[in-house]
Design a protein around this nucleic acid. Structure first.
Lengths: 105, 105
DNA sequence: GCATTAGTTCGAAAAATCCGTACAAACGAA
DNA sequence: TTCGTTTGTACGGATTTTTCGAACTAATGC
């Protein structure tokens, strides 16, 4: 994929950016699935939404330091930046995931 | 003030709405101050930002069930809906406030 | 070579945000 | 009561963000 995928240093990510990234139902569902299963490609998420919109959501999550993407062939491997995020915002992601699971069982 | 101020039932508020309300630096600072001191009027918050913009932020916070406003004379009394929020999203607000204080000391 | 698949980019429409201006309501003082 | 002040909302337009179809690129397979 042409655009060189870049990931921010976690210490450069403001709290508001993380909360913003998590403030969308589609992105929440992405994060919840990524938390359960590591290394999934983009196509494994949220089939009902157009690819271009999903691409936008991935970018928001990437730029908020929440998800890491590595190109593998024609697809991407997605993973949560769990440890980094926990170091920077202790307990935040875990708590949000807990709320999410409570809300959508 | 003309518009009848309404507050949502806390169980009707989606997680994404709460995170969205908290995903703005100005609103975060409002919530942080409201958490420290109860019953402050709107004018006590964020003097540098235009009144009309602040009014918008208050509305977002109100509609997310985060803040309760009661008209008192020409001003409003603002308070966090702490207990209700903690019942619906246990630990979430406290965690976000913790991150906020860590980030802006 | 050609077709398929995975995901990005472009461009335009729709929605949200920001902010100046005008406004309404409550209050105090004359 | 009437005038001026204070507190916050409503309106309208400019800017920004979000959404999504269509075109595109790159890797893979036949």
């Amino acid at each position: 994929m042409p655009a060189p995928i870049t990931h921010p240093k976690i210490e450069d990510v403001p709290l508001a950016a993380v909360l913003h990234a998590l403030s969308d139902p589609v992105r929440l569902s992405i994060v919840a699935l990524a938390a359960e299963e590591d290394g999934l490609p983009c196509r494994a998420f949220e089939t009902a939404i157009p690819k271009s919109t999903m691409s936008h959501h991935w970018r928001i999550l990437r730029e908020a330091g929440i998800i890491r993407q590595e190109g593998r062939g024609t697809s991407r491997i997605n993973s949560l930046r769990r440890e980094e995020l926990d170091a920077r915002f202790p307990g935040l992601l875990g708590n949000v995931l807990e709320q999410y699971r409570r809300e959508s069982p």
